[in-house]
């Protein structure tokens, strides 16, 4: 493990703990952006540039903005409550189980890992055959075209769902805006006529 990787991991852990500890939700939302940026750095160090790109754009950019948008309609202070022991224990248990599961995984970059021997070589050969340098795009768009179509549909469905939840107020807002716009044009038209 290189020192830089270790440093990023430590920073990631510190950020995560800080997010949990902070009462100020605004700072917590900004720290989730920092968290994503640190993970993006980790992904770059592990040669997963496409994942890093997505993490930086979505995690550090979009999600933070949507968090801030959500904060602007609610309180920016976390309500103080007692520590809930049962959920805390469940979270700790699940976390420990996940860490335990990683002991069973092949080493990072291990050439003998199963993932390098199933369909991987075929995908790489295909990318070479069709002269597509970025094998990740080839796999996502071509070999896994169904999955990516499904993901796009999920994005579509998610937005439709959010709009159905927020839609009524949003519609009112739009009506108000249209009314103001017509009022303005009408006023200027009235001035012209006068």
């Amino acid at each position: 493990m290189t020192p830089l990787l270790l440093l990023l991991f430590v920073a990631l852990a510190v950020t995560a703990v800080q997010i949990v500890r902070l009462d100020d939700l605004f700072s917590a939302a900004m720290l989730t952006g920092v968290f994503s940026l640190l993970s993006a750095g980790l992904f770059v160090l592990m040669d997963a540039v496409d994942v890093a790109f997505t993490e930086a754009a979505v995690g550090a950019g979009m999600t933070t903005i949507l968090m801030l948008g959500a904060l602007s309609v609610t309180s920016t202070r976390e309500r103080q409550g007692k520590l809930q022991w049962r959920p805390f224990v469940v979270v700790l248990g699940v976390g420990a189980a996940l860490v335990y599961a990683t002991f069973d995984m092949p080493g990072f970059g291990d050439p003998a890992a199963p993932i390098h021997h199933h369909v991987g070589p075929e995908y790489l050969a295909g990318a070479e055959e069709h002269h597509i340098p970025n094998a990740v795009t080839m796999v996502l768009a071509s070999y896994r075209g169904y999955d990516t179509l499904g993901e796009t549909v999920v994005v579509f469905a998610a937005v439709v769902g959010v709009l159905l939840l927020l839609g009524e107020r949003s519609l009112l807002m739009r009506l108000r805006r249209r009314a103001t716009a017509t009022a303005e044009t009408n006023a200027s038209r009235a001035r012209d006529i006068a």
Binding site: A70, L163, M173, A179
Partner: peptide, 27 residues
């Protein structure tokens, strides 16, 4: 579109109906 939805929500402080009513006589 999601951003607009949230921006709409946070701009809702001004009463919606009043604006529509204000606009109608002018129109």
């Amino acid at each position: 579109r999601l951003y607009y939805a949230f921006a709409d929500l946070s701009e809702l402080s001004a009463p919606v109906e009043a604006a529509i009513d204000d606009a109608t006589p002018l129109a």
